[in-house]
């Protein structure tokens, strides 16, 4: 499997769970020579969010990449409009062409055990490429 693992797309909303998923992805990338695209979905309310959010995400991604010895040519932050599930599914298509999707088991503000709105469950149902759900 690792031979075809070229790009890992991992969802990141700044939550603790998402950071666990990013760490897992970066560790795998450092072992397999894959690239990592850290994906942040901007919803309808995104434009009301504090503009420093994007910078904070970028800082976090840079810090984590350093920790796993991955340089900036192998780790990129991709910010895209849409809900988290739709944006992650688009990562399997051009131009990203990810070969694996990675998400945390729960993102920001989700209720434990809630099925409705669960990105990981939605992706499990609809994804056309391998999906890894990293437990918190």
């Amino acid at each position: 499997m690792t031979e075809s693992l070229r790009t890992i797309a991992v969802g990141f909303d700044g939550s603790h769970d998402a950071e666990t998923a990013v760490r897992w992805s970066m560790k795998l990338a450092s072992e397999t020579n894959a690239n990592v695209v850290v994906v942040n979905a901007v919803g309808m309310l995104g434009r009301f969010d504090n503009p420093t959010v994007a910078f904070k995400l970028e800082d976090s991604v840079r810090r984590l990449a350093d920790e796993y010895g991955l340089d900036t040519t192998r780790v990129t932050l991709h910010v895209d409009d849409g809900d988290a599930c739709s944006v992650m599914m688009r990562m399997a298509e051009e131009p990203i062409n990810a070969s694996m999707l990675v998400v945390g088991s729960r993102g920001q503000g989700k209720h434990p055990g809630l099925l409705l709105g669960s990105t990981s469950l939605e992706l499990a149902e609809h994804t056309t490429i391998p999906l890894v759900i990293v437990p918190s």
């Binding site: 909303d13 979905a41 919803g43 309808m44 309310l45 995104g46 809900d83 988290a84 993102g107 920001q108 503000g109 989700k110 209720h111 809630l114 099925l115 409705l116 709105g117 990105t119």
Partner: peptide, 18 residues
């Protein structure tokens, strides 16, 4: 079914917007 049950359980955030 799920939406109805979610609301009757008190509701909450379904996703980052909704």
């Amino acid at each position: 079914d799920e939406l109805g049950a979610f609301c009757y359980a008190g509701g909450g955030d379904i996703d980052e917007d909704t």
